[in-house]
């Protein structure tokens, strides 16, 4: 059993003839190394098999629960406060929305978030204004919104002035000058969730 690129694969399918670059093959979500047979991969999720030249494989699957991955950007609400030292005062309160990066996500440990980059600068990360509005979209939609090709946010930008932070975990923080605009943009995103990429593109083209 071995599915081709772009085909549906099911858990237990075995992929042979893996292309590697200098004996290295990068495997993404939905794939696992097959311990029983060297140089093969075993599929662990239902989805479409994808390949990116020269050596990256992954499975595009539907998922509703977010599983943290190192380096991803997430939006969240602070639930518990602990460990502020004199040197590093943390100016974050319980209930604040934050935009943070996952520093490490070893599966044996709790994931760790940071709001600074490697130069200890906040950049775009940090506490999000309490005037904003946090809502959830599906994981799939979050990925689509973050994709460069998706014209939705740019098109909305022509009509409304807004600030947005989209987390890979499906949480979105949105802020506008007017509350009405927040609701309108939220609605637009919710409608777009049920539309295909092509129809979003078509609708966006009509907006001038």
């Amino acid at each position: 059993m071995s599915g081709g690129i772009g085909e549906l694969v099911y858990p237990g399918n075995i992929l042979k003839n893996i292309r590697s670059n200098k004996f290295v093959c990068i495997i993404g979500p939905g794939l696992k190394r097959n311990d029983n047979l060297p140089n093969t991969l075993i599929v662990t999720r239902v989805g479409t098999l994808r390949f990116e030249s020269p050596n990256t494989y992954w499975v595009d699957s539907l998922q509703k629960r977010y599983i943290p991955k190192r380096g991803e950007l997430v939006v969240g609400i602070v639930a518990k406060k602990a460990g502020a030292t004199k040197k590093q005062k943390v100016n974050i309160n319980v209930g604040d929305a934050v935009y943070a990066k996952l520093l490490n996500t070893y599966k044996e440990m709790e994931p760790e978030l940071v709001c600074v980059d490697s130069y200890f600068k906040a950049g775009s990360l940090g506490v999000l204004s309490s005037e904003g509005f946090v809502f959830s979209v599906s994981l799939n939609m979050a990925h689509r919104l973050l994709s460069i090709e998706n014209p939705l946010l740019r098109t909305l930008g022509k009509k409304y002035k807004y600030e947005i932070a989209i987390g890979m975990n499906g949480k979105v923080w949105l802020n506008c000058a007017k509350t009405v605009d927040v609701l309108k943009i939220k609605e637009a995103i919710e409608i777009a969730e049920k539309k295909s990429d092509a129809s979003i593109l078509n609708t966006c083209k009509k907006v001038r």
Binding site: P11, K32, T44, R45
Partner: peptide, 8 residues
């Protein structure tokens, strides 16, 4: 749910 499985 898309959870990782060894087989169906």
């Amino acid at each position: 749910s898309g959870i990782d499985m060894r087989f169906i």
